[in-house]
Design a protein around this nucleic acid. Structure first.
Length: 569
DNA sequence: GCCGTTTTCGGCCCGACTGTTTTCAGTCG
């Protein structure tokens, strides 16, 4: 997949053009194309072959030629030329908060600064003094920005972001002057990783809220403090923005702060065509306020369906909403059970009964206890004698539990040859067989892909767990040919898992959407090793919703009998 | 550079906050 590579080049081109002071609309065109290419669910090389590049929003004749050139030669001549026109390190300056293209250009032209190190040095030697427009405060901000850059402004997992947001929302919502409060931004869109936290508040007394917000216990720096909008940085280096609006603007402001940027732009363009103007205060006809209290009201006024926050990425949802053809997204309450749960029999911390009771409490009607298979020694993989004991225990518990069924499951290992470590006569006995790669990650792409395809072909394997193996912050995805695996899954009626574990989220949103488009049904599971981890299912649901999945696309929304039928190959 | 339920040319989302300015440009989201 060259998608990300090409998107990065277009983004770089945009930044070089910015520094050179090019036409802002040309710059935005590159940025828009970059973002849309990043969000593609198809391999851009396939689109090139099928002559469908210009179907990508924001890609016209010129950019499609550049993409073709890159696919063919591995280079884009225009890009190579642009790169030579400015010093290599200059683009890095744009990564410093408070330094944009204008400042970067100024620093380069007036002071010969070519990179971050050069900038730091110049500041230390006081060489920035006398540059028009740069005074003490600006220098101070640049220095702070460099510090932030050096620490690395990382993205958090969705789970971490939810936690940071709660630390602000909880105390704020107790204030009497707070009428409504909501998170917004990529957290509300439930992206798998989040950089900044956005909080929106309705109140008639913004001043007190700004004060309370900037004085919150986890705040380290105040980045900006205005009448209705403030930004802080927490001790963990997370930027949190807070904005206060009146009640009648809540919907408009929520829409605006939830984004995404491209979604907002397209919605506003649509409004302009209808003679309306959208900003964060409302929708206006000439000067007159015509909507804004709720998001629903705004979408209705624009003649379209309500677009769920998770879909707002400008990847076709606006067009479908206008035709009233958006899919009905899956919800947490649609799930009937969890199909990937561990117990004490392998490396889990709770007994089967404890896990089952917790699932029952969540309103599930079944759970598959999928302990590791024999070869995975590190996770106390189970031998045949232990399996027998486990089966007996499950049968006994099932007699006891009312309205709930424990499914006899296993998470088997796909070995380095693509074989499963239990024999067929053992596999046959399970209700649910989840298969996954746990070893030999470093094999070649062909080997890894073949292993997965072979596992799909096994008639007793129902679900491939965490299919790409990526572990956020720890491990990249296996080097696999994902398209081939999708094809194999489709042909063999094997299901793919959306693993809800916050560091995994595997498949991710784009991959899940691709699977759905292929007609593959997915399983949303937690891979829980403790009772508490069952709660992570909400993150799997977030992935599914961002992937446009409906109830029908997910097998564990089925009632028990239908599920067992669906699993049969 | 893209794009078209007014257009193949002339538009292109919109506003808060900051710093350095006396009215605004730059940055950010």
């Amino acid at each position: 997949m060259k998608n990300l590579e090409i998107a990065q080049i277009f983004r770089d081109i945009a930044r070089i053009l910015e520094i050179k002071g090019e036409n802002i609309f040309r710059i935005r065109a590159y940025e828009r194309a970059a973002q849309n290419i990043e969000g593609l669910t198809h391999d851009i090389e396939d689109l090139t072959r099928q002559d469908k590049l210009e179907e990508i929003p924001g890609v016209g004749s010129d950019l499609s030629e550049k993409i073709k050139e890159f696919i063919k030669t591995g280079k884009i001549k225009a890009y190579e030329g642009l790169k030579k026109s400015i010093p290599e390190g200059l683009l890095d300056l744009l990564n410093i908060p408070s330094v944009g293209p204008k400042t970067a250009k100024l620093l380069y032209e007036k002071s010969g600064i070519k990179n971050v190190a050069g900038l730091e040095n110049a500041i230390k030697k006081g060489r920035l003094k006398g540059i028009f427009g740069i005074k003490e405060k600006t220098v101070e901000n640049i220095l702070k920005g460099i510090e932030v850059l050096k620490r690395g402004r990382q993205r958090m997992t969705l789970a971490q972001a939810s936690f940071v947001a709660e630390e602000f929302v909880k105390p704020l919502e107790r204030l009497p002057e707070v009428k409504k409060i909501s998170t917004a931004g990529s957290l509300r869109r439930q992206k798998e990783t989040v950089r900044d936290i956005d909080i929106l508040i309705v109140s008639g007394k913004p001043a007190g809220i700004m004060k309370a917000f900037t004085k919150a216990s986890s705040v380290k720096d105040i980045l900006a403090e205005g009448k209705t909008k403030s930004s802080v940085r927490t001790k963990e280096d997370v930027q949190v923005d807070c904005r206060v609006v009146e009640d009648k603007s809540f919907g408009a402001a929520l829409l605006y702060f939830t984004g995404s940027k491209n979604f907002n732009i397209k919605l506003r363009q649509l409004a302009i065509k209808k003679g309306l103007k959208i900003n964060e205060y409302g929708v206006f006809k000439k000067e007159k306020f015509v909507a804004g209290r709720t998001e629903e009201g705004i979408f209705k006024l624009l003649g379209m369906q309500y677009v769920e926050a998770e879909l707002r990425e400008d990847t076709g949802e606006i067009e479908l909403a206008r035709k009233l053809k958006l899919p009905e997204l899956i919800e947490l309450k649609d799930l009937k059970g969890d199909l990937h749960v561990h117990s004490k029999y392998s490396d889990g911390s709770n007994s089967i009964e404890e896990m089952a009771q917790a699932c029952l409490k969540k309103g599930y009607s079944y759970a598959a206890i999928t302990d590791h298979s024999e070869s995975l020694k590190i996770a106390h993989g189970m031998n045949l004698a232990e399996l027998k004991k486990k089966k007996t225990e499950i049968d006994k518990l099932n007699k006891k539990l009312k309205g709930f069924r424990i499914l006899f499951g296993t998470e088997v290992d796909i070995d380095t040859e693509g074989e499963i470590d239990y024999k067929d006569e053992v596999l046959r006995e399970f209700d649910v067989v989840v298969a996954a790669i746990h070893t030999g990650f470093k094999q070649s792409k062909e080997q890894l892909t073949d292993r997965m395809i072979k596992a799909c072909a096994n008639k007793y394997v129902h679900i491939i767990a965490h299919p790409t193996g990526r572990l956020w912050g720890a491990r990249e995805a296996y080097d696999i040919d994902f398209d081939k695996i999708l094809k194999a899954a489709k042909e063999t009626n094997t299901h793919l898992e959306i693993n809800s574990f916050p560091q995994r989220l595997d498949l991710n949103d784009l991959q899940s959407r691709q699977a759905k488009e292929m007609g593959i049904k997915l399983a949303i599971s937690t891979d829980s090793h403790t009772v508490d981890q069952l709660e992570a299912i909400k993150f799997g649901i977030s992935v599914a919703r961002r992937a446009w999945l409906s109830k029908n696309d997910v097998i564990n929304t089925l009632p028990l009998e239908k599920l067992l039928k669906e699993l049969k190959k």
